[in-house]
Design a protein around this nucleic acid. Structure first.
Lengths: 249, 249
DNA sequence: TTTCATTTTGCAATATTATGCAATATATTT
DNA sequence: AAATATATTGCATAATATTGCAAAATGAAA
């Protein structure tokens, strides 16, 4: 049986019974429990179900579409998320922009952490739902159906009413000379506003975005305090940022 | 049975009966009371219920979580949604509050309709994503994890910046003498603000909420223009509203 | 085809988690 | 205070998860 078939059957089962059990699937699909476990993990990463000990159950029915687009570069983003955690302390006020990387960071937070998170990202909201001690403030505005976030005048104005300890900035492009840039004008404005109102800027970028640029300027490279990628800080392309006074992780 | 299933069932029970008893659960779920106790502790840590001697009761919020409410009375809500459609014309500006009924209305909209929708409800956003001609404005504010909506000062202020043609108001309780009331103070304030800034108020209520009341006042019964339930307008309990000048559908 | 790289899969060793039991402690009722 | 019910703790066992690894399968390029 093809792997794709297996995944399909698992999804079908879940739709039918609201749950699947590891051993049952192993028997039904004629593969080891290890494989089933890996399959479930994969589907879980795509947000199609929720992996639990011993099997899987239906994930959140409320916003399934938010999660479906997050399955790109999952591994790198998880590495970045782990690196971010050392900067986040209980009780802080965190401003987070919209993006799959910032969402991955939220997913990596310990379930009992106490924080205030301010964001304009709907996927982040759906993650933080399950964090009882995280106080969430959502920034309103015009819905952007591509980024699943709000933008526009009201969004910018609302951001200016906050002072955050940390700004978590998932970014489109970063280049030592050009600085941070975005391919969406409205989002670049949001990023700017977030940077201006935060004490400490942590930029999150997968390594392939380093050295690239987009049409809309956000800020100079040294406008950020930390740059986090999934690679080791000693990688050649990153040392330039270090020399510019940016902490590389 | 999976542990995750057990936890779900406990939460369901609590939502239904407002309480659970250790021994009952132990029997129902086929696990020792020790395990049930540990499950309850876990859920209690997440804030989903309050552990007490001998079992558990509902936490601070009296009403069940949106995820659970979403699946009750679905049929009635669909009937209501269909009735609402005749009031909604292309090009209008609609203000919608948070609730499973208003969400059901959005789901019933024709996919190609042109509208502007202003809301503080996250589930409505996730529905309207798929409507290419619906311009959506989200009202920011403090996240309320039970209703999946925003409330608070900023929310109220933002609402006041709009003028809507129609206000779709999913309601908690309505009584001819007491008027509209809500069980959540913050949401009652949002409802008030929405009513004040809209030209035409359509209240949506399943029939079982007619004649009931909650602690927080929203507006007088005749403060609304239309009342829509799943029942026929000729039903005895509804004619009183008709006499008060409210259109019943 | 053959070769090489990548992905998939199963296995084994190890770590983690879940569960029931029993001993002890604490609360509640009589 | 005594009796009863419920909680807490530590522990042993079983179930499940994770990790690294090697064999097999698959796919792409020569």
């Amino acid at each position: 049986m093809l792997k794709a078939e297996r995944l399909q059957k698992i999804v079908e089962q879940i739709a039918k019974d609201n749950k699947v059990i590891l051993d049952d699937l192993s028997l039904l699909l004629n593969v080891s429990t290890d494989t089933v476990r890996r399959d479930i993990k994969e589907l879980s990463d795509k947000g199609l179900l929720k992996a639990v000990r011993g099997g899987a159950i239906m994930g959140s029915q409320v916003h399934p579409h938010f999660k479906e687009r997050q399955h790109i570069d999952t591994q790198q983003k998880k590495v970045i998320a782990q690196k971010v955690l050392e900067f986040i302390k209980s009780g802080q006020v965190i401003l987070a922009n919209a993006g799959t990387t910032t969402t991955a960071v939220m997913e990596a937070l310990p379930k009992d952490i106490t924080l205030t998170v301010i964001t304009n990202s709907f996927p982040i909201i759906s993650v933080l739902e399950d964090y009882p001690n995280v106080n969430v403030f959502f920034i309103g505005g015009q819905l952007n159906k591509h980024s699943f976030s709000t933008t526009g005048y009201e969004t910018i104005e609302a951001i200016r009413n906050f002072r955050a300890d940390i700004c978590l900035l998932g970014i489109c492009s970063i280049d030592l000379k050009v600085g941070l840039t975005d391919f969406d004008y409205q989002e670049s404005l949001v990023d700017r506003a977030m940077i201006e109102t935060s004490k400490y800027i942590i930029a999150l970028s997968t390594y392939d975005k380093v050295g690239t640029s987009d049409p809309y300027y956000v800020c100079a490279a040294n406008g950020i305090d930390v740059l986090i990628t999934e690679k080791d800080p000693s990688v050649a392309d990153l040392v330039g940022f270090k020399d510019a006074g940016i902490l590389i992780k």
